[in-house]
């Protein structure tokens, strides 16, 4: 039977924006919301991009760290830290819980997803809404949606934080890109529509806007 085309957890919130869509990693994804110049302008102020389509693998258990190491993956030594190795990001969410995310175009996680996990390691089904927030006005956005000083908390580039954003539990980290700092945010997929709408409302008030996946990744 043909595998179904998946929907981004935030897709419903994006309908009204009439994005140009395409399939990435088997997920129907908003590739662009406006012409490249407009989206670049948003990124130069404040932008929001839905990257829920990225492949992920989650696991949890007392021997999860050892098993991941045995699979040749870099494992952060401490909880609430992450390691980026090539196309893979390995996030250590707790002492025994991990999230691994892969950039579009890479297929390393496909192998991992097909590997049987051993005893005392449990594969964790993921349904994340994942966003990239970038632009120099992020501090103003975070000031409105986060109680903690996220930017200060993420000054150490290997750190990740689990906090509340607009009333929703999120995991966040910061990465440097050619366009400046990018903040990656993950939340439960059932809250994806809400978080997208809430963030975008404020981002638009601040003069920014949504950008499609094409801005960061070229879809097929």
């Amino acid at each position: 039977m043909q595998r179904p085309v998946l929907r981004s957890p935030a897709a419903f919130a994006q309908e009204a924006l009439k994005p140009e869509r395409g399939v990435i990693n088997q997920m129907m994804t908003a590739n662009s919301f406006a012409d490249p110049a407009t989206e670049a302008e948003y990124v130069s102020r404040l932008s929001l991009c839905d990257v829920s389509f990225l492949q992920r693998f989650g696991c949890k258990g007392p021997t999860a760290a050892e098993w991941l190491s045995a699979q040749g993956l870099p494992v952060p030594e401490q909880a609430n830290h992450y390691v980026q190795q090539g196309e893979l990001r390995v996030l250590r969410l707790g002492n025994s819980e991990f999230l691994i995310e892969e950039e579009a175009g890479s297929e390393q996680l496909a192998q991992l997803n097909q590997t049987d996990v051993p005893e005392r390691v449990h594969a964790v089904l993921r349904n994340d809404a994942a966003f990239v927030i970038s632009g120099p006005l992020v501090s103003e956005l975070f000031a409105q949606v986060c109680d903690i000083d996220v930017i200060a908390e993420l000054e150490d580039e290997s750190r990740l934080v689990m906090t509340m954003m607009a009333g929703v539990s999120v995991t966040m980290l910061r990465q440097k890109s050619a366009e400046g700092w990018q903040y990656r945010v993950w939340c439960d997929g059932t809250l994806g529509v809400y978080l997208w709408q809430t963030l975008l409302t404020i981002i638009q008030e601040l003069g920014g806007g949504p950008v499609g996946a094409n801005h960061y990744f070229k879809s097929n």
Binding site: F12, G167, V168, G189, T190, L191, Y194
Partner: peptide, 14 residues
């Protein structure tokens, strides 16, 4: 002020 009232949507909401 601006209040945050998170609501969860199921995959079949649409």
């Amino acid at each position: 002020g601006r209040g945050f009232h998170p609501h969860r949507l199921t995959a079949m909401h649409e």
